[in-house]
Amino acid sequence: MTKILLVEDQPTAAAYLAKGLKEEGMMVDVAHNGPDGLHLLLTVQYDLAILDVMLPGLDGWTILETMRRAQRQTPVLFVTARDAIDDRVRGLELGAEDYMVKPFAFSELLARVRVILRRSGRPSPANEPTVLELHDLRIDLVKHRATRGTDRLELTPKEFALLSLLLRHSGEVQSRAVIADQVWEMNFESDTNVVEVAIRRLRTKMDDPYPIKLLHTVRGVGYVLEVRD
């Protein structure tokens, strides 16, 4: 799955962009200041970084210069309100793949993201499968339809997002923290049971009526979709 880092200090804009990218099948980490963004870029492998220029603590120019000196070749797309030609030229000369001026339509951002991913040889959601299957479970990501055998599963949007996450990573245990972040865009708190409630409701619909169980709890770790003997 395509993994993107979004470094944006405006919470509303960051949430909007992250939500849109996740709906397109991408994994998104968000940093709200320069130092955090740089740390992630130096320690985590991303397919693309979307950087604002004016950031608290460290600007986008410095982030890009520092990561390139550290031999980190993650492609960078600048998004910023700075629209001067000199700023655009500076961003490209520093090694950014593209430069977008705010405000912009999300559809344009998505198109540029896909172009950069194709150009860099990294996986693009446009090339990822739109239908996922495990045993007799099948989900169509485009039509937002889930079935088990010949039965249509009536899922809420969050239940479908949860099932999609688990099925994309079938055989891999997903922690409650990862699920909370990817499905609800929230930091996991130990006294929050939203994940357990959603898992229980999903299991009632897609597992309980059928003899072969696919959704399993790994105690103390998380949840996994897989066929077990």
Rank of each mutant, 00 (worst) to 15 (best):
H169T: 02
R118C: 03
V178W: 03
W184P: 09
V76Q: 11
R201A: 02
M54Y: 12
H32C: 04
A81E: 09
I50R: 00
E154Q: 12
R148V: 02
S124Q: 02
D83P: 01
Q182I: 04
A13Y: 03
D9S: 13
T130V: 00
L110D: 05
L153W: 00
M27I: 09
L163G: 08
R145W: 01
P11R: 11
E154H: 09
L166P: 01
R176P: 04
T204Q: 15
G37I: 08
P211M: 06
L110F: 11
T43L: 02
T2K: 00
E172D: 13
M27A: 14
A31D: 09
P211W: 03
K102F: 14
V218G: 06
M26E: 09
L110A: 10
A177S: 06
K3E: 13
S164L: 00
M206T: 02
R176V: 05
L215W: 02
R168I: 02
S120N: 06
A177M: 01
L155F: 06
R69L: 15
A15W: 07
R69I: 12
L21A: 04
L55Q: 14
L21K: 00
A84E: 11
A31Q: 04
G220W: 08
L94E: 14
L41G: 03
H32V: 03
M67T: 13
P125L: 01
Y210I: 05
D191Y: 10
L92H: 12
D151I: 11
R88C: 09
F78R: 10
D140K: 00
L155Y: 02
G121N: 04
V53K: 01
S170N: 06
A49R: 10
E196Y: 10
L109Y: 14
A161L: 05
D229P: 15
I85F: 13
I50M: 07
L110Q: 08
I199D: 05
V76L: 07
A146R: 01
Y223V: 10
P56N: 10
R90W: 03
H32G: 04
D191L: 10
Y210N: 14
R88G: 12
Y16C: 06
I139A: 00
G121M: 06
R176T: 06
D59Q: 15
L17S: 04
V221S: 11
A111I: 12
H135S: 12
H169M: 02
V173L: 06
A146L: 11
L58Q: 14
Y16T: 09
L77G: 04
L109A: 13
R219K: 05
H39Q: 11
K19R: 08
